[in-house]
Write a protein that binds this DNA or RNA. Structure first.
Length: 274
DNA sequence: ACGAGGTCCTGCGAGC
DNA sequence: TGCTCGCAGGACCTCG
């Protein structure tokens, strides 16, 4: 679920509540969200640590502490928020990680499907981890040239390539669909067949849409909630995602849908996109 | 090297 | 009403 704009929203919402706070009691309901760390080690490392910074890399929220970083990858249904009162039974039911912050506040990672993951990385492991992820599309120095070199000469569908986190950070299924529509590019077009004009348009549209989605606090299609617990509102601005069979907002053509690209829901206008 | 497909999980809505 | 089936915003793995 959460793609770059959703995680960016979460991180911005949580930052004022988390920076400088010391973590008290920590509980974990399921071990299956952990990667490369045991429950025992995670709990021991978090307990008593002070959160120094809350940042985002790709689709991950990063809590930086003195000796380690907690990486939260929300997957499809993960959410992260600070509760300022006792959790309701429903909130508690899917709370995977709970970390007390004092003053009756609690940081909660909630994940219904538990496809999300938690990692605990030291400085060296973090460097290795972040180096394997592609460039941040919203960085000031993310140029068209950098974008094109990241695409490689792949014959794979452009949609799959821009969703590949090794090539580009943070773009998931919703924003890949939207950016390709706005750029007028067929999602199944092999990356190596994109024209220089395609590159310029797609680079610009990815950035424009991600920024617009952040301004709307993300897309709540179903589960996504901001760090405040509220929904985002970019779903009101989606042009193609979730609109299969409905008329294209530009030309009125019935929007097509397929699962042929990497098995993911793809919606596009066969008249506007080539 | 690449594409296809399965896997991890649970909930929900459609259809019977 | 109640059941089963397919599908869901992600990422990783194996197989051919």
């Amino acid at each position: 679920m959460p793609e770059l704009p959703e995680v960016e929203t979460i991180v911005r919402d949580l930052r004022p509540f988390l920076v400088g706070r010391r973590i008290g009691r920590v509980t974990l309901s399921h071990d299956d969200v952990l990667r490369g760390v045991t429950r025992r080690r995670l709990v021991r490392r978090l307990t008593g640590s002070t959160i120094l910074a809350v940042t985002r890399r790709a689709k991950h929220a990063v809590l930086e502490m003195e000796k380690a970083r907690l990486i939260v990858q929300p997957g499809m249904t993960g959410s992260l928020m600070v509760h300022r009162r006792a959790l309701t039974p429903d909130e508690a039911k899917y709370a995977v990680l709970r970390a007390e912050l004092g003053r009756g506040q609690e940081l909660v990672y909630r994940d219904v499907r538990r496809l999300g993951t938690l990692l605990l990385l030291d400085a060296k492991a973090w460097t290795r981890y972040t180096r394997a992820i592609g460039p941040e599309p919203l960085d000031d120095d993310f140029t068209v040239e950098q974008f094109v070199s990241g695409l490689g000469r792949s014959r794979q569908a452009i949609k799959k390539v821009i969703m590949d986190q090794r090539h580009l950070a943070g773009v998931g299924n919703i924003y890949a669909n939207e950016a390709l529509f706005s750029a007028g590019i067929d999602p199944s077009k092999p990356a190596l067949l994109l024209t220089p004009e395609d590159h310029i348009k797609l680079h610009a549209e990815i950035r424009r849409i991600l920024n617009a989605a952040i301004a709307s606090n993300g897309t709540t299609f179903r589960d996504y909630r901001r760090g405040t617990g509220d929904t985002g509102s970019f779903q009101l601005e989606l042009q193609v995602y979730g609109r299969e069979g409905e008329p294209c907002r530009v030309c009125g053509t019935r929007l097509s849908g397929t699962h042929a690209i990497d098995g993911r829901t793809t919606v596009f206008c066969h008249r506007c996109q080539h």
